[in-house]
Nucleic acid binder design. Structure first.
Length: 803
RNA sequence: GCUCGGGUGGCGAAAUCGGCAGACGCAAGGGACUUAAAAUCCCUCGAGGGCAACCUCAUAUCGGUUCAAGUCCGAUCCCGAGCACCA
């Protein structure tokens, strides 16, 4: 009876769960408390599901199963996020339709995932590219359009002279990945979301959530709110240059200005310049760089002086030079900065490179590098070379100088955000058509809601076009339509939505996936929102999270949802690398298919192995030996059936081990750290084995504890042992503090902070009792020593300071 | 470059509030069972020293705070993720 037949057992129980859905479906009406556990829905890639996916889903499944055993009405749904570039490119490569690719890959994904034995409510499965789903994505878009959150604005796109618009993913070192031509940045009007108008609420709303601190920090930094001043610098040609600064305290040290080549004011300055050709050449060059390239090179701060005009420092009246520099971004604040080389490292390097005066205005050593904000705002540094402010500490000079600039009418207070508005259009086939119509008379008219979904036409050719227009623009039957308002001949918008669209609200469709009259019923939204626990990849902690929070806030303002934060907790997982420590990829041949592992060790062993390998949040290599170790462990649990004796209570010698394990798993569930739960289950097994037998109560308890991790084998043993109820209806045990420690504890004893030995003392004993126990048990330690000081922490430490 | 993580034995890792560093496993070595092997079971297992009791060193590096530091503070090095059209 050493080995168990994992294949037969897993097939049996998976069939049972599928047939008898009540174990995994969330009840609409139940006396229980609702708990919504969400895992990011994957893109159904052609590579199939690999162990990285399984790693991502196993911990949430264990968590959901624990909540069920704790008596919660748990919703744990799944689906696929099927629109997007990857499916389209795969389809082009295989000369098939994206629809076919998605259907095929989704089937494979679901088949694979079912074999791991997740407690998923399959009745709610969704696919974001289904008409019944994207009808509501389009409907939501129209609500946002009608509330004024969507506008047509200038955006930058990657442009290949041969292939048209490219995604960032299609760039290879500034060239096109297909034809290897040089790419440039091109301006194009596109639909955008006015997301910056919600910036403050997106920061402030984080207070309502319980995300991990690093997740909140990522969100805040991405939004990048800063408080500063808009300051006008006069120029020799009358035109004013408005810069944004968060460091007005350094303005006396501003010795040049840098204007982004794509700043709104750049063309005006160019008119007066005497070196137009040189400047135009510089502008052209910077257009070939992406924003990332412009800002990432620390050494080469390129720039080109704008000759023939100068600016004036508003407080010193010194004449200062103006440069175009592409490390300044045209779309942030005013696209212009005042450069203070003594107190900004970037400006410092630029000044050295272009031989510009470095004027120190804050104390410190600037011989080798700038003394920056992080250093000088310490209440110690003082201001110099700054007229009447000389000698003041920086913090107070900052206030004074700001006020002076404002009083002089040169500056106004300004709040800026690093976050941009959200470009929400793609010139691609495989996405939701944007439901707008261009009418020559009425301009932009929304498609009537009764006509949704505006379906994506099924066509044989859907490749991106060379002129940068959407492939839909070439389908005249589809493009030409009547204006819904005036009936005149009109044209449909041909851009589609980005992959972010469907994923910004999918957690609500799970609540009511078949509803044809609303994206979800008000009752279901009220019953389940916000999502209690949201599990997903580290790579989504800024953008996907932010986008869906933004949609939620707009929907809240439209009174369409009851809460304005969609998720309460957010847990981010790492990545499983290949066994060789490199990212799993087909070309490297280190992808692990869960089906192979299940074949060899069983799904339960795979599940245990995946959580045992490492922490959910970490990135680490796949380890087959961890799975094989867990299979051995399960074999031993199976063999416990030979040692079952009668008994209705946990025996006294096993009380502490059992309650320690229960506490550990309970604690781990709150903190999503199940690797140590597996260790706790193994330790508890070792104690049971040492006891020589297991009684029925102990076995019953052990099976409940192990069930969320290894659902199949535990169901099988439970049934074979003829416990009365179903395991799924059992209750997760509670731990009792009084059983956690025995009456005698080992107290570590240190001398002068160095660990010596442990002594046995009564639990919770005081310092005097501990010292007398020490004298009795280790008299030699204190012989002829004078104790100068005693540090005693109950049940933790006894530290003696001795000469 | 900017932002966010991380660095602990031969390996994966643990250490919840600053209190016995290495739980739980893997690999390895020794033993039992076996005709033999596999499986299983038992023992050893951070490094160095010592017959032993024990001692010294050890959580990327350097410095600090503290009775006590993997944990807190400062500096440095290295690795991973994201940086707006992959999602």
């Amino acid at each position: 009876m050493k080995e168990y037949d994992s294949k037969a057992i897993e097939a049996k129980w998976q069939a049972e769960w599928e047939k008898n859905g009540r174990f995994n479906t969330a009840d609409k009406v139940s006396g229980k408390e609702n708990a919504y556990v969400l895992v990011e829905f994957p893109y159904p890639s052609g590579k199939g599901l690999h162990c990285g996916h399984v790693f991502a889903y196993t911990t949430p499944d264990i968590f959901a199963r624990i909540l069920r055993l704790k008596g919660k009405n748990v919703l744990f749904p799944f689906g696929v996020d099927a629109f997007g570039l990857e499916a389209e490119r795969t389809a082009i490569r295989e000369q098939k339709l994206p629809q076919e690719i998605v259907a095929r890959n989704t089937a494979t994904f679901y088949e694979q995932i079912k074999r791991v034995g997740y407690g998923i409510d399959w009745s709610r499965a969704i696919n974001s590219s289904d008409e019944g789903y994207y009808k509501w994505t389009q409907w939501l878009f129209l609500q946002f359009y009608k509330m004024g959150q969507i506008y047509s604005g200038d955006t930058q796109v990657n442009w290949c002279p041969n292939c048209g618009i490219l995604a960032n993913e299609e760039l290879e070192n500034g060239t096109c990945c297909q034809c290897h031509a040089e790419t440039t940045q091109k301006t194009r009007k596109q639909w955008c979301f006015k997301m910056t108008s919600y910036a403050d609420r997106l920061i402030d709303g984080l207070k309502e959530t319980k995300y991990a601190p690093h997740v909140k920090l990522s969100q805040e930094n991405y939004i990048g709110r800063s408080y500063g001043l808009d300051v006008d610098f006069a120029t020799s040609v009358g035109e004013k240059i408005r810069v944004y600064t968060t460091c007005p305290e350094t303005i006396y040290g501003a010795t040049f200005l840098v204007v982004a080549p794509d700043a709104p004011i750049a063309p005006k300055l160019l008119k007066y310049a005497t070196n137009k050709d040189e400047l135009n050449e510089y502008i052209k060059k910077s257009k070939s760089k992406t924003e990332f390239e412009r800002t990432s090179d620390p050494k080469n701060k390129s720039g080109c002086e704008v000759k023939g005009l100068t600016a004036k420092n508003p407080l010193t009246n010194a004449e200062i030079k103006i440069y175009l520099g592409d490390f300044v971004l045209g779309n942030y604040a005013n696209g212009c900065v005042m450069a203070v080389p003594a107190h900004d490292q970037r400006d410092f390097e630029f000044a050295k490179q272009h031989n510009i005066k470095i004027l120190q205005v804050i104390s410190g050593d600037i011989s080798a590098r700038a003394v920056e904000k992080a250093e000088y705002l310490d209440g110690q540094h003082t201001v110099m070379n700054s007229a009447e402010f000389d000698g003041q500490v920086v913090e107070s000079a900052k206030v004074g100088i700001s006020q002076k600039l404002i009083d002089l009418g040169i500056a106004t207070k300004k709040v800026n955000y690093k976050m941009h508005d959200w470009v929400f259009a793609r010139q691609r086939y495989w996405g939701e058509p944007i439901p707008l119509v261009h009418c020559p008379k009425c301009e932009i008219v929304p498609v009537p809601e009764s006509e949704l979904p505006l379906t994506l036409p099924k066509v044989s050719s859907y490749e991106p076009t060379k002129d940068g227009e959407s492939p839909l623009a070439e389908i005249s039957d589809w493009v030409n339509c009547k204006c819904p308002k005036c009936g005149a001949a009109a044209k449909r918008e041909t851009d589609t939505m980005p992959g972010w669209a469907g994923s910004s609200w999918y957690f609500m469709r799970y609540l009511d996936p078949k509803n044809e009259t609303a994206f979800a019923s008000a009752e279901s939204l009220a019953a389940w929102l916000p999502v209690g626990w949201y599990f997903g990849g580290n790579e989504h902690t800024t953008r996907h999270l932010l986008y869906s929070r933004y949609w939620q806030k707009m929907l809240f303002d439209l009174k369409l949802v009851p809460v304005d934060e969609p998720y309460l907790y957010r847990y981010s997982h790492g990545i499983i690398l290949g066994e060789n420590g490199v990212k799993m990829s087909k070309s490297l041949g280190n992808v692990v298919d869960p089906r192979e592992i299940i074949e060899k060790y069983g799904a339960d062993a795979l599940r245990l192995g995946l959580v045992f390998m490492g922490d959910y949040g970490d990135t680490f290599p796949w380890s087959e030996t961890a799975v094989s170790a867990c299979r051995k462990f399960l074999n031993k649990v199976w063999a416990l059936q030979e040692k079952v004796i009668e008994g209705n209570e946990i025996r006294e010698n096993l009380l502490t081990p059992f309650h320690t394990a229960i506490k550990k798993i309970t604690f781990d569930a709150e903190n999503i750290k199940f690797n140590t739960s597996v260790a706790a289950l193994m330790s508890l097994y070792n104690e049971i084995k040492a006891a020589g037998s297991i009684n029925r109560k102990e076995l019953e308890t052990y099976l409940i504890l192990l069930n969320p991790f290894a659902p199949h084998i535990t169901e099988e043993i439970w049934e074979a042992q003829k416990f009365t109820t179903r395991l799924a209806d059992a209750r997760f045990p509670e731990y009792n503090e009084t059983y956690l420690f025995s009456a005698i504890v080992d107290l570590p004893v240190q001398v002068n902070g160095k660990m010596k030995k442990t002594i046995s003392v009564a639990k919770d004993c005081d310092e005097a009792e501990a010292l007398s126990a020490l004298r009795a048990q280790m008299p030699e330690l204190l012989a002829d020593k004078e104790i100068k000081k005693v540090i005693f922490v109950k049940n933790k430490i006894l530290n003696l300071i001795i000469n």
